[in-house]
């Protein structure tokens, strides 16, 4: 018998405030050790997909209304976020990813590592500071005072401390200088192969995501519009043009679209 995949989404639907449907049945699989990217324009449902996997709290006014999310075969869509984290599925959110009034060290100290002992916890902290030496230098400064890149490092570090086997990363590249994004991407790949992690990446920057990922899904209006190996998607000009907004060779500004005859009306 084949072991069930690390994570599967089967026809998952999500509704906000009981009426706004954000996802209309998403199917998605992440195998152990894989990097999978979810691409799509604003409002396509990328972030909602990650949030559905990592669990909603009452504050969100959102819930999974259909389908099933399985972690190694066990349904997890009704679990609260802290139990999903303890199963090893850990989110690095897009905004508000650190506790701004806590210091870097306190941000890490707040993480609950229920199953791991003190020695294991110390080992993981060591690992975080090794991979992100800039965090070690700023250990006692408040997280709110960190630069965007440092904040992203802290968010990834705190997530690593949770002992993940699947890291969900929402917009790693958002608001960061390209050189920092490249650095973070390389660092993540190293960590991935060291710890044998799987990563599910949500990105607006298709170029960066397709270069990181093994496999990718393109979402549109809460549905999967295209899926396949990252290399295939990267080579597919139709997909590039229609969903990712970067036609190979030609570059369009939004003005072209606006003045095109018959575009609207």
């Amino acid at each position: 018998m084949i072991a069930p995949p690390l994570l599967t989404l089967e026809a998952v639907g999500v509704t906000y405030q009981r009426s706004i449907v954000a996802l209309h049945g998403i199917d998605l699989t992440v195998q152990a050790g894989q990097i999978v990217a979810i691409l799509g324009v604003n409002g396509a449902g990328k972030t909602t997909t990650l949030r559905a996997i990592s669990g909603f709290v009452g504050l969100d006014q959102a819930r999974v209304t259909g389908g099933c999310i399985r972690h190694r075969g066990t349904a997890i869509e009704t679990l609260p976020p802290h139990l999903i984290t303890r199963r090893g599925i850990v989110l690095v959110p897009e905004r508000d990813k650190v506790f701004p009034n806590l210091t870097v060290a306190e941000n890490l100290a707040a993480v609950v590592t229920a199953a791991a002992g003190t020695a294991e916890r110390r080992r993981r902290e060591q690992l975080v500071y090794e991979h992100f030496p800039r965090l070690a230098a700023r250990r006692s400064s408040e997280a709110g005072l960190l630069s965007g890149g440092e904040r992203q490092m802290l968010a990834v570090g705190a997530a690593l401390l949770c002992g993940p086997e699947l890291l969900l990363i929402d917009e790693l590249s958002l608001g960061l200088a390209p050189i920092i994004v490249g650095e973070l991407g390389e660092r993540l790949k190293t960590i991935r192969s060291e710890l044998g992690l799987a990563i599910l990446l949500v990105e607006q920057s298709a170029a960066f995501a397709l270069q990181m990922a093994d496999h990718a899904y393109v979402l549109e209006n809460g549905r999967v519009a295209a899926a396949g190996p990252a290399a295939t998607l990267a080579a597919d000009t139709d997909i590039q043009r229609y969903y990712l907004g970067t036609a190979a060779g030609e570059r369009r500004s939004y003005r072209d679209g606006r003045t095109r005859p018959g575009a609207c009306q």
Binding site: S54, A110, V112
Partner: peptide, 12 residues
């Protein structure tokens, strides 16, 4: 500061 993030960091 941020109950949702706290929960996502494993805090009950």
């Amino acid at each position: 500061q941020n109950p949702l993030l706290a929960a996502q960091r494993g805090i009950n």
